[in-house]
Design a protein around this nucleic acid. Structure first.
Length: 581
DNA sequence: TCGCATAGCGCG
DNA sequence: AAAGCGCGCTATGCGA
């Protein structure tokens, strides 16, 4: 595998270094920053190397803006995070010798005010690294450490090392995809968003006034409480107000409010919904995050310890279903939306090689399949039981239902129970491909045995979930990486009106625009929507094979091609307190 | 006036 | 006031 390492030099130029199969540096090419995109494009057209660089979120945006897509990379920052913790590597000390590689992604700090303009300035005030180093020598040294770690893993356990390499490749692909998603942006219909807001809240008010309809609901609450001065926006004051009105609450959460019968409760819950919509995704959100018809959140690949992505700025992980209709394809384009049905329990069945659970997962709905085994008597029970199994539920309905799952699916339950037991006694656990959980901070002295027990149980629930959530994240990453490759292989559409707002790389071709744990949305020229949908399906199959070989577990998709991604409309609304997986 | 913790709720 | 995991964001309240 041919690699080319990219790093800056002291004069502000960029150096490309060819690396041979063993990572030994060879020919060097020095180019100016301005010439970098063409230098990379040239090699991308010929040898298609794996690009080794400090941080994809620093190097890739300028390439995308110049119309250059790269096929693959090794992101030193992302891979460092994995390697410096994975149990597949015995000696972590060398990887920790340069602490600058522990710095957060540049894109995350760039979202903060007062950031430096200099592309390669990685030292913040006080000398603390706020970005990983981007210079050639640091990158060469770090890459050498990665190769050493991988060779060690290889010597210890070749199969495990192979998984680890897959993980590093997938994680790095995630880095590329995150920037591509940001570069293309989610096609966003501002007028539709405004319609939704206006219908719910009333017309956009001048200045900071409360929207009219929201104001009307607020007044309804005040009347029902018989308290014209009640403050609805402060939980602390609201609790006191409610108590004065004879509603005995200790918080203002929806869950607790719903337990009470009072004419103010209905309008108050309504008010809280409206207030949430206004503050989280109202007109100011629109002004801040949607420009030129594109919503561009900042994704943080590997931002959660489990390997799931996080986001910073823009709230990509929490776009309310209510606003999904605002997600709309450009004219002449379509959206291909797909999500995996019950990804996590399917992943668990595959990891554990649990034949009975795989059998239950054979249909489109795993929960119905579990009912069919006779372990539980309804789909709701199946869901509660499965969630309890993966999250560590011990009380209430889970407390009754989870043990029944233990009888029906001993292998799957054994896997999560073992993960929990390891976590409780302070050991680390690893995902299928080798991402390893962080150490338990400190098992506490005898100072507070009560607290020590609680902390260790909490950690057990965390590690129980870590192996499943983390492996599901790996599946999703593989899905996305295959999809990215398949879409790039589709011919450009020269007939459809170009999606110029998506940038030069994607204006004429299908590209992913949204990713959320187990869900992906592709923006495709109408003529290629079917081909894109097929790519989404095929990639899911490929991801399953890559991780689990021929394990008899499939990953069925809910997929649709449309102009608007308003799938929330036809799905049943989730029940209270329910988490769908 | 600022930074930080908390409450609450959106998403999976 | 969720039970039972993982996130981000806003407004509020409090202390410095």
């Amino acid at each position: 595998m041919h690699s080319v390492l990219v790093g800056s030099d002291s004069s502000g130029s960029v150096v490309l270094v060819d690396l041979d199969g063993d990572g030994v540096p060879g020919r060097r090419d020095r180019v100016s920053t301005a010439d970098l995109p063409e230098a990379i494009a040239a090699r991308e057209r010929t040898v298609r190397p794996r690009w080794v660089w400090s941080d994809t979120s620093v190097w890739y945006p300028q390439l995308l803006a110049a119309g250059v897509r790269v096929d693959r990379c090794h992101d030193l920052r992302l891979c460092h995070t994995i390697l410096s913790r994975t149990a597949a590597v015995r000696h972590h000390a060398p990887l920790r010798e340069d602490p600058r590689w522990e710095a957060p992604p540049a894109s995350a700090s760039a979202a903060e005010p007062g950031d430096g303009e200099a592309l390669f300035d990685y030292t913040g005030p006080g000398g603390t690294a706020r970005e990983v180093p981007h210079d050639l020598d640091s990158a060469l040294a770090e890459h050498a450490r990665h190769l050493t770690a991988l060779r060690e893993a290889e010597a210890d356990d070749p199969a495990r090392a192979r998984s680890l390499r897959l993980l590093l490749a997938a994680e790095s692909a995630g880095g590329l995809i995150a920037e591509e998603l940001r570069g293309a942006g989610v096609p966003w219909d501002v007028d539709e968003h405004d319609r939704i807001l206006t219908e719910a809240l009333g017309p956009r008010p001048q200045f900071d006034a409360k929207p009219a309809r929201m104001q009307a609901v607020a007044e309804e609450v005040l009347r029902a409480l018989g308290d014209p001065r009640a403050e609805l926006d402060s939980p602390v004051k609201l609790v006191k107000t409610l108590r004065r009105a004879g509603i005995a609450v200790s918080s203002t959460s929806q869950w607790e409010l719903q337990q009470h019968e009072h004419p103010a409760i209905g309008p108050l819950l309504h008010y809280k919904k409206l207030a949430r919509l206004l503050t989280a995704n109202g007109w100011s959100w629109l002004a801040a995050w949607v420009h030129d018809g594109r919503y561009r959140p900042v994704y943080v690949p590997g931002g959660a310890v489990t390997g799931r992505w996080a986001s910073t700025g823009g709230g990509a992980l929490q776009i309310p279903r209510q606003l999904r209709p605002a997600l709309r394809a450009d004219p002449g384009w379509k959206l291909v939306s797909a999500d995996v049905a019950q990804l996590e329990p399917r992943v668990l069945a595959a990891m554990a090689g649990d034949r009975a659970m795989a059998q239950a997962a054979a249909g489109a709905d795993l929960y119905s399949g579990i009912v069919a085994t006779g372990a539980v008597s309804s789909r709701d029970e199946a869901k509660t039981a499965v969630l309890g199994a993966m999250y560590g539920g011990t009380t209430g309905a889970s407390g009754v239902l989870v043990p029944r799952l233990r009888g029906a699916f001993p292998a799957a339950m054994g896997l999560v129970d073992r993960a929990a037991a390891l976590g409780e006694r302070g050991d680390v656990v690893s995902t299928w491909l080798g991402r390893t959980s962080p150490e338990l901070p400190e098992p506490d002295a005898e100072a507070d045995p009560e607290r020590a027990r609680r902390v260790s149980r909490e950690h057990g629930r965390f590690t129980r979930n870590f192996v499943v959530q983390g492996t599901a994240a790996e599946w999703a990453l593989a899905w996305l990486a295959f999809l990215r490759t398949r879409l790039a292989a589709l011919p450009e559409d020269v007939e459809a009106p170009p999606a110029t707002a998506s940038g030069p790389v994607f204006a004429r071709r299908a590209h992913p625009v949204f990713f959320l744990h187990d869900e992906v949305i592709v923006h495709a020229p109408a003529s290629q929507a079917e081909a894109a949908a097929e790519a989404v399906r095929a990639s899911a199959v490929e991801a399953g094979r890559l991780l689990f070989g021929n394990a008899p577990v499939d990953f069925p998709l809910d997929l649709r091609i449309s102009e608007r991604a308003d799938k929330g409309a036809e799905k049943e609304s989730p029940r209270e307190g329910e988490v769908s997986v």
